[in-house]
Design a binder for these strands. Structure first.
Lengths: 189, 189
DNA sequence: GTCTATAAATCGATAGAC
DNA sequence: GTCTATCGATTTATAGAC
């Protein structure tokens, strides 16, 4: 079920703080202060601190899983599929740069949903790797170590949340196409 | 001055824990337990928790600064310089994957040395950007947005610490050359 | 829905014995 | 150089008034 409006405000405020200092360094008092209330009042809307982190991470992870599942089964070239994955990352990261910080750096503090998250991550990486391997077989991609290609591209996409806020003037679609150019064809002329 | 052997043991043990859970989630008791001693004993060797983090981050940041300063002033092509930067990252990350995690994720918890760190980071990125711009002018690199190229390459290099431990069988020099191929020429055939 | 008050646990760090 | 003991601050979370 989706969170109440007030709960969403708490999650949004917490996301901002989690990005700045990391989950462990942010206190319930910090989150409450950002909303102009006392820490005890938060517990009228959320079960505990962990629930906030869980919502941020799992909802983002599921967004990625749904996105890549659609792309995987499309009748497109491997190059097209890769471009669509790049667009997927740019769009999700643009809409929630704060949450992306937790997805990247705070997942290890999950408790009840840690296994769920790890499964989603493995599934995502497997789908991505499959698309790369397919591209190699169809002679669209270079015949290099697929893991190195996956690592290189995915590292860049996972870092978008850091970089997007520094380039607010850049349109997401322009960013996606420039990024596709660099990742597909490299920087060498 | 360089730390005593015992101090280095403390820093090494702390690095491992900082990588697993992040600086804020690691307690002095955790670090002590990893060394088989009590938390109070740590203070015979270090001033406080912050000093451990400062040493890890500043010494790595200075390693990068020294490395890129040498590369920058060499009489090489821009492509050669970029390859040397990639090798620099692979070598430093291979030697200290744990410390690299703190450099990437825990720098905001620095106090006394925060400004020093931020200056080193800006200097490093400026040098890197200069090398890319030089390559564009000399027609070695594509005439695309230099910031996007910098971001893309640097994101991959900064994530090496996550990936290297998963591929222990891979030789650093092989990794560096494969990575150079992917980053320079892309994955597209 | 927010508050005050507070419980219970844990934190970084110090004092002083050995 | 490590220990026990402990201080003072801070943490998450709950109870109960309004």
């Amino acid at each position: 079920m989706s969170p109440t409006p007030r709960k969403l405000e708490i999650i949004t405020a917490a996301s901002t703080l989690f990005k700045e200092k990391g989950y462990s360094a942010v206190t319930m008092r910090d989150i409450a202060k950002a909303l102009g209330i006392k820490a005890a009042s938060l517990y009228n809307h959320i079960k505990n601190k962990e629930e906030i982190l869980t919502f941020i991470i799992i909802s983002l992870a599921e967004e990625f899983i749904k996105g890549i599942a659609l792309i995987k089964n499309r009748d497109s070239s491997s190059v097209e599929k890769l471009k669509q994955i790049i667009t997927l990352h740019v769009e999700i990261a643009s809409n929630n740069t704060n949450g992306m910080a937790s997805l990247n750096n705070d997942w290890m503090h999950l408790k009840d949903e840690l296994d769920h998250y790890l499964n989603l991550r493995v599934d995502y990486e497997d789908s991505f790797r499959e698309i790369i391997k397919e591209g190699i077989e169809k002679n669209e991609f270079k015949n290099l170590n697929p893991d190195i290609m996956l690592f290189s591209v995915l590292s860049t996409l996972r870092s978008l949340y850091i970089w997007i806020p520094l380039k607010e003037d850049m349109d997401p679609s322009v960013l996606a196409s420039n990024l596709s150019e660099v990742l597909l064809k490299g920087i060498n002329k």
